[in-house]
């Protein structure tokens, strides 16, 4: 897997170890391969190394040892700005990136940085706000919007860069139910358009309902990696990662059901 020839499609982390300058080891040998069109939720408690991992995907951080390749390109020796063409990254706090006086301009900033022609930028802006379902906000001033809506604007401004890989750091924080549903639909649309979506999240319902694969991290290591059903069938691993399974899975556990319950059908099937 690590012997990529430079034509490999996908993001490959090979035995990545990362130590912060203050000596804290945040990643202890992480190996993950993410292919085209995959939707991956990364979960785990604070301090498990999720954000550190995510920052490796677009070259904001470089591994202390091991390697990260994106479509065969080693991130070492690349700036984050140059990798931005491949990997979009939405930070947790939208206020760390919004600065334009109109949503449309804000969303256009990324594609413009990538040097796209004006008509392509315009098309991408329109496409991105449609994906995130915030077309009605285009003419607004970002700071007249609430925090949850600013977050959607920040997400659209990265989606507009049309990168094959998108990383979302805690997208559902502060969102209400309609906002969370919008994000769920966004993940599905991007995935079916062949883009790889990775989201760091604490929201297990969101992870279980909208992602095909869940990676559970604890203490700088991957401890579970698989489909929601596989991952949530391992209560002991989840406990070790201090991750609480989604509500229905917990309901199933309380009822003493052996199998993993993720929806109503599961429940009815195991009851009958």
């Amino acid at each position: 897997m690590s012997g990529g020839t430079g034509t490999q499609v996908g993001i490959v982390l090979d035995n990545v170890r990362y130590e912060y300058p203050n000596g804290v080891v945040a990643l202890r040998g992480v190996s993950i391969t993410m292919g085209k069109g995959e939707t991956v939720a990364i979960v785990g408690e604070n301090g498990a190394g999720k954000t550190t991992l995510a920052k490796h995907l677009n070259g904001l951080l470089k591994p202390t040892s091991g390697s990260v390749t994106v479509d065969g390109i080693d991130t070492r020796g690349r700036t984050a700005a140059s990798l931005a063409r491949l990997v979009g990254f939405v930070f947790q706090n939208p206020d760390d990136q919004l600065f334009q006086n109109q949503v449309s301009r804000e969303v256009a900033f990324g594609p413009r940085n990538l040097g796209y022609a004006a008509d392509r930028v315009e098309k991408l802006v329109r496409w991105a706000v449609e994906q995130v379902e915030i077309t009605d906000l285009l003419a607004r001033h970002p700071y007249d919007l609430g925090l949850a809506q600013r977050k959607l604007v920040a997400i659209a401004s990265v989606v507009a860069m049309d990168t094959p890989y998108i990383v979302l750091d805690e997208p559902t924080t502060g969102q209400d139910y309609p906002g969370t549903e919008k994000l769920g639909r966004l993940v599905a649309r991007l995935g079916s358009a062949g883009k790889t979506v990775m989201a760091i999240t604490h929201d297990m319902e969101f992870a279980a309902e909208h992602f095909a694969r869940i990676i559970v991290m604890a203490q700088g290591q991957v401890i579970l990696d698989g489909s929601p059903r596989e991952v949530f069938s391992h209560p002991s691993g989840l406990e070790r990662a201090s991750v609480e399974p989604p509500q229905l899975a917990r309901l199933g556990q309380l009822m003493g059901l052996g199998e993993c319950i993720l929806n109503e059908e599961d429940l009815l099937r195991s009851l009958c």
């Binding site: 209400d176 509500q247 229905l248």
Partner: peptide
């Protein structure tokens, strides 16, 4: 009204 009922209540 934009509120999700807890899944267990839905069941």
């Amino acid at each position: 009204c934009g509120v999700r009922r807890p899944p267990f209540m839905e069941i």
